[in-house]
Nucleic acid binder design. Structure first.
Lengths: 224, 224
DNA sequence: GCATATTTGTCCGTATGTATA
DNA sequence: CTATACATACGGACAAATATG
């Protein structure tokens, strides 16, 4: 198994204030979801602790958090690895997304902030597409879907789904063409946002279900 | 990934192969869920580590897991405390439950095991009521609702909701009368199970929604 | 299949900072 | 305000498991 730590260079400056474990987990989480640390890469305790200037004990606490989030896997006596999602994981994530997102979009009295956030996420995605910043397109896409979940008005549900969507980014990183993955969905996000704004929640739920089916199919095809 | 086909993995082997941190977290989780450690109680590192015969570093790793599950709260430089749920938490949990459980019960091709588990949970609850083991009644109740979620067929969703239901037990422990809390719901669980078995999923979802509304109301009244 | 090196798992001691009586 | 207790974080140690030659 490879032990590629290139995504950790220059990390030291990010670790300045607040709790060391939180900052450590945050720094690793950012590098994982942005793809700097690729799925399958091992994170040896000694090497990572030295690189980031923390003790092994502190690093292990951060690893526990990330393992609990599903971003890394802890293999006993073997070490910590960036999670690699398989086809079953992708199917499972989309089963969860279909259930939660389609139910959330039907919510009766959705928070106005969440509706506004929908529109904002669509705008960010369009801007990212115009600038050909494909990683940002993916970020805006997931931001849109986090806003969909927020329509339900439960911050607990928001937190749960944030983690599921973060996991999903692990699947993005094993694909070759980031453009083909996200670009067609930006338009569909806009259509769903419009339906929500018009109060046509049932239509929005149908559009969302079709969206998720297509996205799952394409992702599964890309994963092989 | 673990495929143990030997059938020889007895308790000793199992204990040896699980990490101290996992067992530690499990022990603490059990004590919190069962109410032996009451909401608001502090868990001083040194005392708990000595009591359970582990090092503080190991204990801190377990604390990180439990904090991530929401069973304890980590207050900077003050320590970890068993979580105390307020009314907003209860409302939030029930918003999540309503969305997820009512959607799950409508699932088209639910796994047969989950349907069987529904019936088994109802039986366990009835037996616990007969034996006046009120804590077990609560356990069986949550087991029933975990089975409801399992109808959706996503083990990721199962894990998310398991944690939400575990959190909910924290609210039970601040109430006085455990009997009045759970007993009336055992019958309603049985009715919901019957509706699911008959394929009347829409009726089951309605009954479930009414159940959750009542339970939330009663819990909020008890919390004051 | 064996011996060795590496890494993880766990523990301890300690220095420092923070909150509280 | 001082004193005390506790959390935070570090570094070193050693056994056990795993990887390597």
């Amino acid at each position: 198994m490879e032990s590629d730590l290139t995504g950790l260079s220059g990390a030291r400056t990010l670790l300045d204030r607040t709790s060391t474990v939180s900052r450590l987990a945050g720094a690793l989480r950012t590098r994982i979801i942005e793809g700097a640390l690729r799925p399958g890469a091992q994170l040896p305790e000694h090497a990572v602790a030295d690189l980031l200037g923390v003790s092994r004990n502190t690093l292990r606490e951060a690893f526990r958090l990330l393992a609990h989030e599903g971003l890394v896997v802890h293999e006993p006596h073997r070490g910590v690895f960036v999670r690699t999602l398989d086809a079953a994981d992708v199917r499972d994530i989309y089963t969860t997304r279909r259930l939660v997102e389609c139910a959330a979009v039907r919510s009766e009295n959705a928070p106005p902030e969440a509706v506004a956030e929908l529109r904002a996420a669509v705008g960010a995605a369009q801007a990212a597409v115009a600038g050909e910043r494909w990683n940002d397109v993916g970020t805006a896409d997931l931001r849109f879907h986090a806003a969909i979940v927020a329509l339900a008005g439960s911050w607990r549900l928001d937190g749960l789904m944030d983690r599921v969507l973060a996991e999903l980014r692990l699947a993005f990183h094993v694909l070759d063409d980031p453009r083909r993955l996200h670009e067609p969905y930006v338009r569909r996000n806009g259509e769903i946002a419009a339906l929500v704004e018009q109060g046509r929640t049932a239509d929005a739920a149908d559009a969302l279900a079709a969206y998720l089916d297509d996205a799952e199919r394409e992702l599964l095809a890309g994963i092989r």
